[in-house]
C-alpha cells in the first residue's frame, strides 16, 4: 500500500530517530546483531556484513556458517592461531568454536539452498522495492564477473538482510523502483538495513521500521519512492 503524499500520514508506528544518525557502519552492525533472533544459524557476507560478528554476544547462541564448509566459525585468527586450513569466505584465517562442524561444498550449499539457514546478511549495490538484489556485478563491460556464493545465499536463507548505505557516495539512491545493475536474485531480500533507515520488504511494498537522522517524509522525497509504516 502506497503512502498518500497529499495528506498527513500517521508515522507513529515507525520510530523516527530524527535527532540521531545517520548510523556509522559499526552502529549499523550492532543494530543488525541485536535484531538477529537468539539461536539462529547465520551467514555473514564478505565485507561490511562481517562486522556484525563483532557485536554478537556468545550468550545469543547464534551459530555462524561459512560457505567454504563450516558451522561454528569463531573470530578472526591472530598470531599462533593462524591455520591455513581454517579460513572464512573472504579467505582470511579464522578460528573454530566448541561444537563446530566441517562439511564439503555440496553440503554447505545444500544447507543454503535447502532453506536451513535462518538469516544471511549481504552487502548490495542496489535493492528494488520488491526485494530484487543486485550485489555481484556493476555491469561495466570490462569488469571481471565474479559471483561466488552470493546467488545461492540470496535465494536460500529464510531471511535475507541487506546491509548498505542508503545512497551512493554520489548521492544516488540504492533502494530503487527497479535495479539497473545485473540481478543476484529476484524478490529475495526481506529487510534492508541502512545508515538512514531500516526497511522491511513486504508483498505490499516497503515498510519503514526505523529511521536515523531523517524522517520518513524526507527519505521518500530523496528516494522518490513510497514506503508504508508498520
Amino acid at each position: 500500500m502506497a503512502v498518500n503524499n497529499s495528506s498527513p500520514k500517521d508515522h507513529s508506528a515507525t520510530i523516527e530517530h530524527t535527532g540521531r544518525g545517520p548510523l556509522t557502519a559499526d552502529e549499523l552492525a550492532a543494530l543488525i546483531a541485536r535484531n538477529i533472533p537468539a539461536g539462529s544459524y547465520v551467514n555473514l557476507g564478505i565485507g561490511q556484513p562481517t562486522r556484525v560478528a563483532d557485536h554478537l554476544h556468545p550468550s545469543s547462541g547464534i551459530v555462524l556458517h561459512t560457505e567454504n564448509g563450516m558451522l561454528g566459525m569463531g573470530p578472526a585468527a591472530a598470531g599462533g592461531q593462524v591455520d591455513p586450513d581454517l579460513i572464512n569466505a573472504g579467505k582470511l584465517p579464522v578460528t573454530e568454536l566448541p561444537g563446530a562442524a566441517y562439511f564439503h561444498h555440496a553440503d554447505s550449499f545444500a544447507m543454503m539452498r535447502g532453506g536451513h539457514l535462518d538469516v544471511c546478511v549481504l552487502g548490495a549495490f542496489q535493492v528494488s522495492v520488491t526485494g530484487d538484489l543486485a550485489n555481484w556485478h556493476t555491469g561495466e563491460r570490462d569488469a571481471i564477473p565474479a559471483v561466488g556464493g552470493a546467488m545461492d545465499l540470496a535465494i536460500g536463507a529464510k531471511d535475507v538482510y541487506v546491509m548498505m548505505t542508503l545512497f551512493t557516495k554520489d548521492g544516488a539512491p540504492k533502494v530503487v523502483p527497479a535495479c539497473t545493475y545485473p540481478l543476484t536474485g529476484v524478490r529475495c531480500v526481506t529487510r534492508i538495513y541502512t545508515d538512514l533507515a531500516v526497511l522491511d520488504v513486504t508483498p505490499h511494498g516497503l515498510v519503514a521500521r526505523e529511521t536515523f537522522g531523517a524522517s520518513i517524509a524526507e527519505l521518500q522525497a530523496r528516494l522518490n519512492i513510497t514506503m508504508d509504516t508498520p
Binding site: H105, F109, D132, G148, G149, M151, G185
Partner: peptide, 29 residues
C-alpha cells in the same frame, strides 16, 4: 554460482543427468 558449481560436480559423480536449481533465476547467469 558456487553452490551450482558444487552441485553440478556432485551430479556428475552421482549419475544425475541434469537437475532443476533455484539459484540464479532471473539473473544474467
Amino acid at each position: 554460482p558456487q553452490g551450482t558449481l558444487a552441485e553440478r560436480l556432485r551430479a556428475a559423480g552421482a549419475g544425475i543427468g541434469a537437475f532443476f536449481c533455484p539459484t540464479g533465476v532471473g539473473t544474467p547467469l
